[in-house]
Every structure is written in structure tokens, then in C-alpha cells.
Design a protein around this nucleic acid. Sequence first.
DNA 1: TCCTAACTATTAGGCTACCTAAGTATGAGT
DNA 2: ACTCATACTTAGGTAGCCTAATAGTTAGGA
Lengths: 147, 147
Amino acid sequence: MSEKALHELAGRYRESLRRAVYLIRSLDVDDDLSTGQVSTLNIVAEGPVRVSEIARKAGVRVPSATEQIIRLENAGLVQRTQDDKDARAVLVSLTAKGDAALTSANHARNIVLGDGLAQLTQAERDAIAGAIGPMNKLNSALTGSTP
Amino acid sequence: MSEKALHELAGRYRESLRRAVYLIRSLDVDDDLSTGQVSTLNIVAEGPVRVSEIARKAGVRVPSATEQIIRLENAGLVQRTQDDKDARAVLVSLTAKGDAALTSANHARNIVLGDGLAQLTQAERDAIAGAIGPMNKLNSALTGSTP
DNA sequence: TCCTAACTATTAGGCTACCTAAGTATGAGT
DNA sequence: ACTCATACTTAGGTAGCCTAATAGTTAGGA
């Protein structure tokens, strides 16, 4: 593919992503969790995770992750415990309340987004479904993140 | 498509978009413009635009648009003029400096993203290219925005 | 052993960007 | 002319991100 064509595609994709970011934000509807908080909870949900690991997966610096975690801890959604094997490390895990809030938040967002997807044709949904893999690969290639 | 399948697709797409936010941020490399500023400049570039129109297209409230515009104006990238036909309205347009900065910023970002796209296979690029239309349609369906 | 370098997390301070509510000025309709 | 709606700005507040500095822990070599 020519360099010019790559740049043209990059421009169109970039614009589409910019708008999709607002779409994502518009999904924070009724609950009191922000998109960023839901993302952090989704990371924590995979098991007790270190702060540095959360930061890496979320694509932010460690102090930003600490800040998010403190907010979530104050809301009673996560808890911090010491790592037995490394006294420097802190392990973050979901509380029961956090687990419930996350399930509910994911469900609410998937319903709204699912409604939008239902308005597309099957071919359009297939196109989006088929792009997710390549999008993730592109994300990894450019941000170096390993989700 | 079943409701369950829609929600499953919604979940995967949502996760991909979440990570794409960080991709977008990683494109702000060397220049002094943020992603939001580039977006605003891109909107303004289409011609003299009202503040309310900028807010609508950017998916933010009017005061947020005003704030962005003031920042850009202070940087000499846009100018505000009165609308002859409606003394309440303010028309925002690019300055020569803003036009140059926008061209440069778009170019720099397209190069970085283009490099990432170049690492994909042709089939993967085609998948992304094919999803842009449906993604935009979905964005419009859910946010009510008319880009 | 001990000393230094590396690592993990937090705190402190600062910035952008978003929001709602309130204020000012203009336009449009009755 | 009066009223209501529209367009924007101002004021005040919050979330979320950053860098720099700090405290404690670990690991590895002299």
C-alpha cells in the first residue's frame, strides 16, 4: 500500500476514533462510574493486580493509577492488600460491591451500545466485528501495551 | 442477531475503543497541540464556524468549546469575529498560523498512525478500512451528531 | 555483610478539559 | 414593547493526567 494511501486511511480512521471516544463517553449514563473507572475495574477484575500493572494495562503512569485506585477504594469498590512476596508491592482486588457495580456498569453500557449496533445492517456489524482484531493489533503495535 | 450476541460484540468493541483512546493520545508526539486541540482545529478548518456548532461537532458543551477556542486564540491559531447577520453569534476561523499548525499536526499524526497501519497485513488494513463507515454510522446513531 | 542501585508505590503540585449555573446581549414572536 | 428563546461568556468546581520528589523494599556486588 502506498504511503499516501496509508496516510489517507490514517486520517479517516483517526477521525472515526475521535468520534468514537465521545460515543464511549456518552455511554456513562445513569450510574456513577466514569468510563475510566469502569476500565480500571475491568482490569482489576482479572484478579489481584499490582498498581504498576494496572497503570501499564490502562496506559497511564503509576501515580495516575494510584489516584484512580484511591478513588475506587473510597467508593468501596476495590481493596488494597500487601503482597506477601514483595513488601513493596500492593495488590488491588475487587470487593463484592465492586464486582456488582462492574457487572451492572458493563451490562448497562453493552445494552446501550448493543442498541446502536442493532440499528446497523448485519453486513455493517460484521465489518465492525472483523475490524476488532486488527484494531487491537494496531493498538498494541503503537502503544506497546499488552492487554 | 441475538441480543446476547449483540452484547458480546458491544463488549469487545468497547474494550477495543477504550484502548484506542490511548492510541490516539500516543499520537500527540512532538508538537504542542493536544488531541482535543487538533480536533477543534479540524472542525474550524471547514470554514468560519459558530461556537455552538463547534461544541456540537466536538460533542462537548458550549462553555467547553469557548474555553478551547480562547486557548487556541491565545496561541494565535484561530480568530473570533462577529457574525454580521446575528450579533449574538461569534464566528471562529483559522489564522494562517493555525492553518499551518493544523496541517503539520495532521501530517505528523498520520505518519505515526500510518507506520502502525503499515505493520498490519493488507487484509487487516482492509478490515479496518471497511469498518470506518459502519463505525461512523454507529457514532451518529448513538450520539445524534451530524459530523 | 553492607552499600548501592533498582524497583514499587505514594504524595505534592500543576495543568487541561470537562461540567453546571448564572450572567450579558441580541433576536424573534405576539 | 414585552417576553421568551438563543448565543456566548464567566465563575466555580471536579476528574484525570502529568512530572518531580519521597519513603520503603529488594537485589546484587565488593
